[in-house]
Structure formats: C-alpha cells, structure tokens
C-alpha cells in the first residue's frame, strides 16, 4: 500500500478500528496498542480492496481477530465498566450510554456496537463476526432489552 493511501485510510477508519477494539477490550491503552497493530497489518497487506467498504470490513475483521488473539495470550485486560481515563468533563448522558453498553456481555456488546456505530446490517454483522444471522438478531434483541432497562427513555429510540 502506498504511503498516501495508507494516510487516507488511517484518517478515514481510525475511529472505526479503535471503537470496535475498545468495545472488546474496554481498556484505552490496550485498545490503542491493538489499533496500531491493526493499521500495521493494513500497511503490510499485499492484497487489494475493491472499495472503501471492502477495506473497512477487512479492518474490522483484523481488529476482531487481534482482540481474540489478545485474550488468548492471557494478557491481563482491565474490565472496568467505565474506563478510568474517560474524560471527566463529558456530559452525563454520554458517559451513561458508553458505560451501559460497555457493561453488556461481549456477545451482545459487539453486535450492538457494529449496528449502532457502524450502522451495519444484520447480514454484514453476520459476515464480520462469522456467526449466523439468526444469532446476530437474537443478540441484538437481547442487548437492546438490557439497554432499555438501563438507559433513560430519551436515549431510547
């Protein structure tokens, strides 16, 4: 990949990569390190991409794989529901939403993140996570049910 393409891709997808990794590891430092690893893999990837959407999906899958490898290596991961370094000046409603989503079990948290942050369809989430569409639907539904109980009415669509 050329340097110019890499710089564009980084600017375009840095939040995509960081946010999905953060949803997995829930720790800012680990998320930052794993995000860098993901972009390093992008830089050295010798295949091509049909489109930006193709690249984005590739990045997310690499990020997810990286998180799974991270857990398997038995590195300690902070499991605080609210990361220590979440800015203290944030408005209350922003803290609450992130905190409640991050409290969800991983199997609900990740589809919820992909659905609400990346606005992926069920089918696309199924491809990214390698699980069936019915499983994605069930996990989205149950994640929403848990959030519905925790979030204030005005935060719920």
């Amino acid at each position: 990949m050329t340097d110019e393409k890499f710089l564009c891709a980084y600017e375009k997808f840095r939040n995509t990569v960081y946010s999905v990794i953060f949803s997995y590891v829930r720790n800012a430092d680990d998320a930052s390190e794993l995000s860098q690893d993901t972009f390093i893999k992008l830089y050295t990837y010798e295949g091509g991409f049909d489109s930006d959407d193709h690249m984005k999906a590739w990045l997310i899958r690499v990020a997810v794989n990286g998180c799974n490898d991270h857990f398997r290596k038995r590195r300690h991961v902070s499991d605080s529901p609210i990361p220590e370094d979440l800015p203290s000046g944030e408005e209350h409603e922003l803290d609450e939403i992130i905190a409640e989503v991050m409290k969800l079990p991983e199997k609900y948290r990740i589809p919820i993140h992909l659905f609400y942050y990346e606005e992926y369809s069920v089918s696309e989430i199924s491809d990214i996570l390698g699980i069936s569409e019915s499983t994605v639907k069930t996990r989205l539904r149950r994640g929403r049910e848990k959030l519905k109980k925790a979030l204030r009415k005005e935060d719920w669509l």
Binding site: R14, N15, Y18, S19, F22, A28, A31, S32, S35, P83, D85, L86, P87, E90, L94, I98, H113, Y117
Partner: peptide, 9 residues
C-alpha cells in the same frame, strides 16, 4: 464513542 476515540487514540 467518537469522543472516546478522539480522546484516547
């Protein structure tokens, strides 16, 4: 989530 990303990455 964008705020979290911008602040930490």
């Amino acid at each position: 989530m964008d705020n979290v990303c911008d602040k930490n990455f």
